[in-house]
Design a protein around this nucleic acid. Structure first.
Lengths: 337, 337
DNA sequence: TAATTTAGGGTTATCGGTAACACAATTTAT
DNA sequence: ATAAATTGTGTTACCGATAACCCTAAATTA
């Protein structure tokens, strides 16, 4: 491997001079500078980031940890985060926890070991608390996205899940639906809790009954086995005419399960959900959704993270950005009587 | 920051002893081992990967560079790669080149600087040649996925694009289509070339005419501005009854552009494409596609990469895996006559 | 002309770990 | 009982870079 010493030897200068040329620091005569640069090109020199980070105590690397890389909400968010990081000269690395606390832990380990300068993280759930405390203890700045964790104070970017749920229920009520079901993520995930809360409030507001039986709390992640969803569909109140899905994947799974039972939206069951269903939604604009500004989640979150890193962690109180959600009405809801 | 020296001091041993405990190397008495371990826990010690990598000359980190993180084909591939890497104890980092040579270059820079042990890369196109030569020159093992680069010899995982195109044309011909158009990725991308070649061969095979006018070579990446696609649709041969899209996003864009013109598939135009349209395809199985085993792309590619790393680069000839493609017939093709 | 300043560049120590070797105290073999 | 092997641990040098300090020669200044 080519090192600054190789460059130094070949250019007849000291290693320090080479270092100065690389970093554009100190005083160097134009002559030496060009000479050193030529040798660097000749030898295809690439600085060793490990050595650099070791002495500088910073890596110029940021980390984005999401819970599901196959979910378009998170990949769009990732694009936003990437753009913001690049704008400030940071390099961005991704990790995918897959809604799995153990994998999250592994990535945390990687983050700590590699001494990443900061982390943008969508925690798997409330159980991520020790992971985030670990980051804090080790002085790694982080910003939460999409999900709060009770007991953790930090900068955070959230969607307005409560309001979103209210809008969805309101929309369904307007269309004449009186018995609405909810399939949701785990209650250990704040966004799921928010959506459930909004759901219950909105039911009350619209004089609709809440039925325990009509709520399934499962996981936001994709699943191969649809039997849980199917079984739930079989036992929900028979007069149910609409289902709210806590995210895009759940909506898809409900629709698949319905299809397996020979039922179809919106004729046999109305369906609405949170988050867009990928770009395909633009082709066949079918499912009525609460759309979240996924790109902004990533962009603003990353912006806050970088601000923290630059200002120093202690600068100012924690910031909380709540992004509004927007109801996009399409064709998956039937208007009743 | 806590270092092995802090541990060593507190445990009344030498730094080397601590290192031995961490890595489970050398001989350590059980008594010392537990003592050191206790101190490590007490101080929340995390090894500094920078320092470690510097002396070991390896990072235990692999890199996956894809061209579009919002495309479900690549994210599914990413899941496969991740699983394979984890299985062998490697940590995986992601990068997203966005079909952009400059961004690819930036990631390459990151890869070289951080001394990643190996790279799984979907090159942006033939112009990636110097990037790959750079990797080779610096002794970074890499495996190509999805796209070949003329002039580069390496392990590679490819789809059978020619055969896929043949199947699509065959299917359309069977359904009575005589004039078929193709919207494709850039000719500087091998997969696009393969698909075009297969397309032309299959036309001949089915006694169908090839018309220059009916082929648009654009980019595989998503675009905001659909005017190019729209303009092309307006000028293709008027007797065209079917369009083959070179990938999923192109199919979506064609359908959107058609919709903007008040036309709909399959009644006004039949559409088929390569790659699945995300999980939504399972709900409303609409577009007839050539499906590629995205997960296998990632899993097998990563497997090959790790084999190379473990065996040493020079072990054995380069391997090439060609994954078969499967035609999934759905409802986007109209039967003519 | 002597005293400063400035430009240009070299020396040394250090970041946090690990390999290679050294060495004393046991244990085992002869 | 003595030589040889084994065990457990410490020392030193080094991975590749940079900060802090030092030094010499030329350019300014008084």
């Amino acid at each position: 491997m080519v090192t600054i010493y190789d460059i130094a030897a070949k250019a007849n200068v000291s290693a320090m001079t080479v270092s100065r040329v690389i970093n554009n620091t100190g005083r160097i005569s134009e002559k030496t500078r060009t000479k050193v640069k030529r040798v660097m090109e000749e030898l295809n020199y690439v600085p060793n980031q490990m050595a650099r980070s070791l002495v500088l105590q910073q890596t110029n690397l940021l980390f984005l940890l999401i819970t599901d890389i196959t979910n378009p909400f998170y990949t769009t968010l990732a694009r936003g985060a990437e753009d913001a990081a690049r704008k400030h000269g940071f390099r961005l690395l991704f990790g995918n926890s897959d809604e799995d606390l153990d994998k999250e832990n592994e990535y945390l380990d990687t983050i700590l070991k590699t001494r990443t300068d900061g982390v943008l993280v969508a925690p798997t759930g409330d159980a991520s608390l020790p992971h985030l405390e670990m980051l804090r203890k080790h002085g790694v700045p982080f910003v939460l996205i999409d999900r709060e964790v009770p007991g953790v104070e930090s900068d955070i970017v959230l969607g307005d899940g409560k309001e979103g749920a209210r809008q969805l229920v309101g929309h369904l009520a307007e269309r004449g639906h009186r018995r609405i079901a909810l399939i949701n993520g785990s209650p250990h995930v704040s966004s799921a809790r928010q959506r459930l809360e909004g759901f219950r409030e909105a039911l009350k507001l619209n004089d609709l009954a809440y039925s325990e039986n009509n709520v399934l709390e499962t996981s936001f992640g994709p699943r191969n086995d649809l039997s849980e969803v199917g079984a739930w569909l079989d036992r929900i109140d028979p007069d149910t005419t609409a289902i709210i899905a806590g995210n895009n994947f759940l909506a898809v799974e409900v629709m698949r399960s319905l299809a397996a039972r020979g039922r179809k939206a919106p004729d046999d069951m109305s369906i609405v959900c949170f988050d867009e269903l990928a770009s395909y939604a633009e082709v066949d604009p079918f499912v009525t959704v609460i759309s979240q500004q996924a790109y902004q989640f990533g962009y603003l979150g990353m912006q806050m993270l970088i601000d923290r890193i630059k200002e120093g962690e202690a600068a100012g109180p924690w910031k909380k950005i709540v992004l509004p959600s927007e109801l996009i009405v399409r064709r998956s809801v039937k208007t009743l009587g």
